[in-house]
């Protein structure tokens, strides 16, 4: 999937209850969760989101609960990556583990508006705002985390480790 699309822009401290309200935690199929992604914060999100689109948040994106349902819902909605100034710790782990790329880049966040078309190259960390022509480089992942990303998530990474040990 191309990581290119229009931007949904939100503020700071977007919590996991805003991403997927707890009343839907009796669901766990990704497609079911996606139907309710962001609904309390942005009722139009689900009808407008298209594959490849990108969420841009400010500080501490994904704070609150440990629910993996939050990055799962975002990923299943078609969002290709999330760009933010900073991410809450558990959300960050969860997103990496399930293969939803997160990019930390203050400059990009300050220079991207809602509706802009943005393209992301994960290999180089380059974020290009095609609407303005400006580009930015995100903070690189530590090597250890890049291994998980490259394996396609923590389960695949661990599977490799387990089969290697046998």
């Amino acid at each position: 999937m191309a990581r290119k699309g229009k931007v949904f822009k939100y503020g700071s401290n977007i919590d996991t209850d805003a991403i997927i309200p707890a009343r839907y935690l009796n669901l766990w199929e990704p497609a079911d969760l996606a139907q309710h992604c962001m609904e309390d914060l942005d009722a139009e999100f689900i009808s407008r989101v298209e594959p490849g689109d990108i969420i841009v948040g400010e500080l501490n994106f994904g704070c609150g609960s440990s629910r993996e349902h939050a990055p799962v819902a975002i990923k299943a909605s078609g969002i290709s990556c999330v760009i933010g100034k900073s991410f809450a710790r558990i959300f960050f782990r969860n997103a990496i583990n399930i293969g939803l790329p997160l990019l930390e880049c203050e400059e990009a966040v300050d220079n991207i508006k809602a509706g802009d078309i943005v393209e992301v190259d994960l290999a180089t960390g380059k974020i290009t705002n095609l609407s303005t022509g400006k580009s930015f480089i995100s903070k690189p992942y530590p090597d250890f985390m890049m291994e998980i990303v490259n394996a396609g998530g923590l389960v695949e990474h661990t599977k490799k480790k387990i089969s290697g040990a046998k």
């Binding site: 558990i90 969860n94 389960v155 661990t158």
Partner: peptide, 9 residues
């Protein structure tokens, strides 16, 4: 606290 995949591992 962690997520479900971490706990699976």
């Amino acid at each position: 606290g962690m997520g479900s995949t971490d706990i699976a591992i």
